[in-house]
Deep mutational scan, measured.
Amino acid sequence: EAHAAIDTFTKYLDIDEDFATVLVEEGFSTLEELAYVPMKELLEIEGLDEPTVEALRERAKNALATIAQ
């Protein structure tokens, strides 16, 4: 499951495998979680700032909209 989540994140969020791995290690496994989890939870991840989190959430929401079509 972790590998599938990493693949999904790299494909749809335009991030590298290392960043995707950090997200999975922090407990995220779906685009929905990244799109809708409280921003505070993402900001608790070391190295993430508000602009990065906002961009990540926007990419996740856009990916979900694209997949739904």
Rank of each mutant, 00 (worst) to 15 (best):
M39T: 11
T10R: 09
T8E: 06
A65I: 12
E58L: 14
G47R: 07
T21G: 09
E25F: 13
E58P: 01
T52K: 09
Q69E: 11
E32R: 09
A63V: 08
L31C: 02
S29T: 15
A65R: 09
A55C: 09
T66M: 14
L56V: 04
K40R: 12
F9L: 07
E50Q: 11
A2T: 11
G47E: 04
L31N: 00
A2V: 11
L48P: 03
L42N: 03
P38G: 09
L13G: 01
L23G: 00
P51N: 11
H3R: 15
G47K: 05
K61P: 01
H3S: 12
R57A: 05
V22D: 03
G47I: 06
H3Q: 15
G27A: 02
A4Q: 13
I45D: 01
T30P: 00
A60H: 01
V37P: 05
L31K: 01
L64P: 01
E46L: 15
V53D: 00
A2R: 14
P38E: 11
T8G: 04
M39F: 08
E25I: 13
T10D: 00
R57V: 09
L56E: 00
L13Q: 00
K40M: 09
Y36R: 09
K11N: 06
K40T: 11
L13P: 00
F28D: 00
K61E: 05
D49I: 04
E50V: 14
H3M: 14
E58C: 12
D14R: 08
F19V: 10
A63I: 07
E17Y: 13
E33Y: 08
R59W: 06
S29W: 15
P51G: 11
G47Y: 06
L34C: 02
L23V: 01
Y12E: 04
I6L: 06
E25C: 13
I6V: 09
L34F: 06
E54F: 07
E41Y: 14
R59L: 07
D7K: 14
K61F: 08
V22Q: 12
R57P: 03
L43D: 02
I45Q: 02
E54K: 15
M39A: 09
A2N: 12
D16F: 04
E54I: 15
E50N: 07
E33P: 00
Y12V: 05
A4N: 11
D14K: 11
A20W: 02
L42I: 07
E1T: 12
A60P: 01
I45K: 04
P51I: 12
E44Y: 10
L31T: 01
I6P: 02
E1S: 13
E26F: 15
E1D: 12
N62G: 09
L13N: 00
A68S: 11
E32L: 10
D7C: 14
E17L: 12
A5I: 15
K61A: 08
L64F: 03
E25D: 10
T8D: 06
R57I: 13
T66F: 14
T66G: 08
I67F: 06
R57Y: 03
N62K: 15
E17I: 14
P38Y: 06
D14E: 11
V37S: 14
E17C: 08
E25V: 11
A68F: 06
D49H: 05
F9Y: 03
E26K: 15
N62L: 14
L34K: 00
V37H: 10
D16N: 09
K61M: 10
K61I: 12
L31F: 04
A20S: 03
L31E: 00
A2H: 13
N62E: 11
D16T: 13
V53Q: 02
A5N: 06
D18E: 13
L23T: 00
L31W: 02
R59S: 07
E41Q: 14
A60N: 01
E1C: 08
A63P: 00
D18S: 13
L43I: 07
Y36W: 10
E46H: 12
P38S: 12
V53I: 12
S29Y: 15
V53L: 10
Y36S: 13
I67H: 06
D49F: 05
L64I: 10
L23W: 02
G27S: 02
E50S: 09
E41F: 14
E26L: 15
M39L: 12
T52A: 11
A65Y: 08
L56N: 00
F19A: 05
M39W: 06
T30F: 04
I45Y: 03
D49R: 04
I67E: 05
E25T: 14
E50W: 12
E54N: 12
D16W: 04
V37L: 11
L23R: 00
I6T: 04
P51V: 13
K61T: 06
N62W: 09
D18H: 14
A20G: 02
S29Q: 10
V22W: 15
V24F: 13
V22P: 00
F9I: 02
K61V: 08
A2C: 08
L64Y: 02
T21P: 00
I45M: 05
H3A: 13
Y36V: 09
A65D: 09
A55N: 09
E25M: 15
A68W: 07
L64Q: 02
P38W: 06
L31I: 08
Y36A: 10
A4M: 11
G47F: 07
L23H: 00
A68E: 09
E17V: 15
R57H: 05
G27R: 02
A65S: 09
A68D: 08
T21Q: 11
T21F: 12
F19T: 09
K11C: 06
L42W: 06
A63K: 03
E54L: 11
D49N: 08
R59Q: 07
A5P: 06
P38C: 09
D7Q: 14
E33D: 11
V24K: 04
I45S: 03
I15R: 00
G47D: 05
V22A: 10
P51R: 14
H3N: 10
L64M: 07
I6K: 06
G27K: 02
Y36I: 09
E17T: 09
E26W: 15
D14L: 14
T30N: 06
D16A: 08
T30K: 07
T10H: 05
L56P: 00
I45W: 04
L64S: 02
M39D: 05
T10G: 03
E32V: 08
K11E: 05
V37T: 13
A20Y: 02
L48Q: 02
G27M: 02
T30A: 05
I45P: 02
L43M: 10
Y12Q: 03
D18Y: 14
T30W: 03
A63M: 05
A63R: 04
L31M: 04
S29D: 06
I15G: 01
L56T: 00
D14M: 14
T66L: 15
T66I: 14
K40Y: 11
G47Q: 05
N62P: 00
L13W: 01
E1N: 13
L34A: 00
T10E: 03
E32M: 09
I6S: 03
R59M: 09
E1M: 11
Q69L: 07
D7F: 12
L56G: 00
K40P: 06
A68Q: 12
E58D: 08
E26G: 15
P38T: 11
R57W: 04
L23K: 01
H3K: 15
L34N: 00
T21E: 07
V24G: 01
Y36Q: 09
L42D: 02
F9H: 00
F9A: 00
E25H: 14
A20E: 00
E25N: 15
Y36N: 13
E25Y: 14
K61R: 13
F9E: 00
